[in-house]
């Protein structure tokens, strides 16, 4: 194809998106669109999958059967989210094996929040409330994104997320209204998860490289800072309601803006974790790669069995 032809295809492509048309897998798309989507969608899938690890850590120790079935169902949902997203990513012409390979070799990133440890049961409450809460804020606008398979996957994901956040907040309510020790445990979890949750919404707008292009392709509808503000404004009253204190001395209602002002975020910590130096990065990758490798014989056996059955069928 000549440069000119590509230019006019690109122009037509951008116009389609501007008209709110969806792009489907076999449609022509600029190479950059394909690559950006493979990167973002697979990162998203990896985050769902690695995100099971910190919570999976507490399934066997959930304090009641009610909590255990809820946590099991939530973690199973996250596996489902990972699978919706991986298969949506595969429609862009990349194989599942390549995607796993990228995760396992550290070439692909996943959300840095999952590199923090879950030390107490209250962390399970804090994750559902804050981490799934922040995820919802990130994900709702993606239900309208331009790439059809991604948008459809996100609609399914968003439908399921609401229960995740509610079960987490319910855990926090119970603990906050419990014994002094339980309340302290809830506060401690909030203290540890608050700042990483704010970081989860991404670098500040002046440091964010992809925003403008992402806006055009509807991979983003609001900037990171806008999303962060939205998260803070909706979460602070929820903390107030159960008598927990947001660990930010600079947090203050700003009448004029109709929003909360908040203190500075430790972006050095964020970049350290992104670069692999968070408290649990190594552990998470070890668990993930280990599960993949230890499962190899099962995958092989299933394939061998399927082939044997097929052969037998043909012989009859």
């Amino acid at each position: 194809m000549s440069e000119e032809q590509i230019m006019s295809l690109e122009k037509y492509f951008e116009e389609r998106i501007a008209r709110d048309e969806k792009i489907e897998p076999k449609d022509w798309m600029p190479e950059k669109y394909r690559q950006t989507h493979i990167r973002q969608m697979s990162q998203h899938a990896h985050s769902e999958v690695v995100g099971m690890l910190p919570e999976g850590n507490w399934i066997t120790r959930a304090p009641s059967l009610r909590r255990k079935v809820a946590l099991l169902a939530k973690v199973q949902d996250e596996a489902g989210h990972g699978l919706y997203l991986y298969s949506a990513t595969e429609t862009l012409g990349v194989s599942r094996e390549e995607l796993y390979e990228q995760l396992h070799t550290g070439k692909a990133k996943y959300s840095s929040i999952f590199n923090y440890p879950t030390l107490t049961w209250a962390d399970i409450g804090a994750i559902g409330w804050l981490v799934d809460g922040a995820a919802i804020i990130n994900q709702v606008p993606l239900c309208n994104t331009s790439y059809g398979p991604y948008a459809r996957a996100m609609i399914r994901v968003c439908k399921e997320e609401s229960f995740h956040q509610r079960q987490g907040y319910e855990i926090m309510i119970k603990l906050a209204n419990g014994t002094p020790e339980q309340k302290e445990m809830a506060q401690d979890a909030l203290n540890r998860w608050w700042w990483p949750s704010l970081m989860m919404l991404g670098p500040t707008d002046d440091k964010s490289v992809h925003t403008e292009q992402s806006m055009k392709w509807k991979l983003k509808r609001k900037t990171n800072d806008e999303l962060r503000q939205q998260f803070i404004d909706q979460t602070v009253p929820q903390a107030d309601l159960i008598g927990l204190k947001i660990p930010d001395p600079d947090l203050k209602w700003n009448e004029e803006r109709g929003s909360y002002d908040f203190g500075g975020i430790d972006w050095d910590e964020f970049w350290q974790v992104v670069k692999g130096h968070g408290p649990m990065n190594k552990e998470r990758m070890k668990a993930r790669v280990g599960a993949w490798e230890r499962g190899a014989w099962v995958r092989d056996a299933a394939m061998a069995y399927a082939e044997k059955k097929e052969k037998r069928k043909q012989a009859v």
């Binding site: 699978l83 298969s87 595969e90 299933a302 399927a306």
Partner: peptide, 8 residues
């Protein structure tokens, strides 16, 4: 609804 991988 979507796709997935399976042996058979």
């Amino acid at each position: 609804f979507g796709s997935l991988h399976a042996a058979d």
